[in-house]
Design a binder for these strands. Sequence first.
DNA 1: AAGGTCGGCAACCGCAGCTAA
DNA 2: TTTAGCTGCGGTTGCCGACCT
Length: 288
Amino acid sequence: MSQTTTNDSEDGTLSKDQEDSPSIDEGSCGMGGGSALKKGPWTSTEDAILVDYVKKHGEGNWNAVQKHSGLSRCGKSCRLRWANHLRPNLKKGAFTSEEEKLIIELHAKMGNKWARMATHLPGRTDNEIKNYWNTRIKRRQRAGLPLYPPEVSSQTFNEDLQTQTIGEFSSVAAPHCSLLQGTDYDIPDGMMDHLKSNQGVLSYAAGMPDISVGGMLTHGLGSSQHCSFARPFIHRPKRIRESETLFPGFGGNTGLPLFDQFQGNACGKISRAELSFSYDPDPGTRGL
DNA sequence: AAGGTCGGCAACCGCAGCTAA
DNA sequence: TTTAGCTGCGGTTGCCGACCT
């Protein structure tokens, strides 16, 4: 939209911006290469080179793109550009209401698993979904609205309970969740206090009127819904970062387990038929 | 009209998982 | 078994146009 993604000259020749590019980085992207790598917006010339390269060699082996095509872009940058903008069958434009419903539904189920969510939205990229969601969070926070419509919260919760009851992924979930389903969850007092004090601003909790943070903990964290909420407490560097986002100031070193695996299992079961809730993606803010 | 703020988007960064040597 | 390279993912930042005051 606003961003110029192809900012070279009309005739497609190498424009000035390719020479004095927004920024030249000496071997960033993790891997050095010695040669200066360009950063910033892609030009249509670069796009063409990348498309041509992928046509000839296929996707993957992104680091070879720089070597073989002469593009001054690191492999990561090429992969991202291809995945988000050049890949065929990409759907452009605003999300349809169906897609919005699906995103909300999926996020309620799996949390910030953008890539996984993208697999349920053909033609959409994880980046698009992530951007959409982040914007949505901002809007809803500003409007003081819950993140999820109540229908989504309770529906998702019930589905997951059902799912678990019939043992759809119990073989995977059990080892993790059993740790949480005992009577003594062993939640440190300080942590509990922190959770309570943050409840008002917890985006997840805010969207779950029936499942307050306290309720989550006393209710049993066995469902995938709960487990995904439990993720912020996971003892793992990456998750700690996440936890700091959701629970500022809380370090997350509680030794609670990781649920990503069975989340993935649970996530694959969503069908369009489930989207029966009445919903407004952003009540009161759509017309912003 | 000018300045400030917001919304939307593209792209970068750092980390983790996977795999081949 | 270890290690280095590659890839993918999620978080974050910066840019720019639109809108508001």
